[in-house]
Amino acid sequence: MNIRKTAVRVAGVGAVAAAALGLFSTGAANADTFVPLPGGEITQTLSDGTVVTVKLVGESANISPSMGATPVHRNAWVSASAQVHIDGDTTATGGNIYPGYVVGCQVTIDGGNVSGGATGGASWDSSGNATPTGGVTSGANLTLGPGQAKSFYVLDREMPDDYGREIHKTKNKFNGSDGSVTWSDETIGLNGCGGYAQARAFVNVEVETDNVISWITLWGQPFSIG
């Protein structure tokens, strides 16, 4: 069985959607800033003819002054829906969806040079593209210094294992040709970053057929969290 890992970037992710900002409140010092984001879509044909389409729709972020009220504290609430469709002449009977976010402190996470490197659950290629690794955690209370980036998964599903012990799953398993995960007001809490900070959504999808296991990554557009 061949195993292939594919990472696909959304075109035109270099521009942050600053022009589309809206304010939810009128107080200038305490305003929540709503950022509509474009989401994304990719279609990947696997080596055995399986066609996998991954979409990120309804994506947005609400940036809020932190309760810590200092420049090193940031808060954001993010919402979106990850959708997967499997088509073609395929033996696939479903798959797994792992949605999450990469957060960076003084690190460019839209490609290009990555100042200072990145640690904590994201590997970076020579072009500066981040790929979440097996060390990615769930939860979003992050502490980052300059030049650091961390990834986290949106899902943290608590369930018993075969022996009744508590385990946590960061994926949504679906059967058939369609699956989705929707989240609303998922918190990103960032501490310790004295410089600029960015975040970026990703959707990892694992699809297995009789002939191939493929890991496909869809990236959303980077956005500033202050």
Rank of each mutant, 00 (worst) to 15 (best):
G117W: 09
V10Y: 04
G176P: 04
M159A: 15
M1C: 08
V114C: 06
A61R: 02
V54C: 07
Y163Q: 09
M67A: 15
T143C: 05
G104S: 05
G39K: 05
W124R: 03
C105K: 03
T70C: 07
D156K: 14
T33I: 15
A11W: 10
P36F: 04
I109S: 01
A76H: 00
T33Q: 13
L23G: 08
V8R: 03
R157C: 05
I42R: 05
G39I: 05
L218I: 06
V78A: 01
T170N: 11
T143Q: 05
G104D: 02
A122I: 15
Y196R: 14
N129L: 11
E158V: 14
I188H: 00
G49W: 01
V13K: 04
A20G: 14
V72E: 12
G220D: 04
V84A: 13
D89L: 09
M1K: 10
A11D: 03
G128L: 10
Y153T: 04
T131V: 10
G164W: 10
P36Q: 05
A18D: 13
L155Q: 10
L155F: 12
G27T: 13
L142H: 00
V51K: 06
G116T: 11
T90F: 12
R4Q: 10
G112C: 10
R4T: 12
Y196N: 13
L144K: 00
T119F: 04
P146A: 15
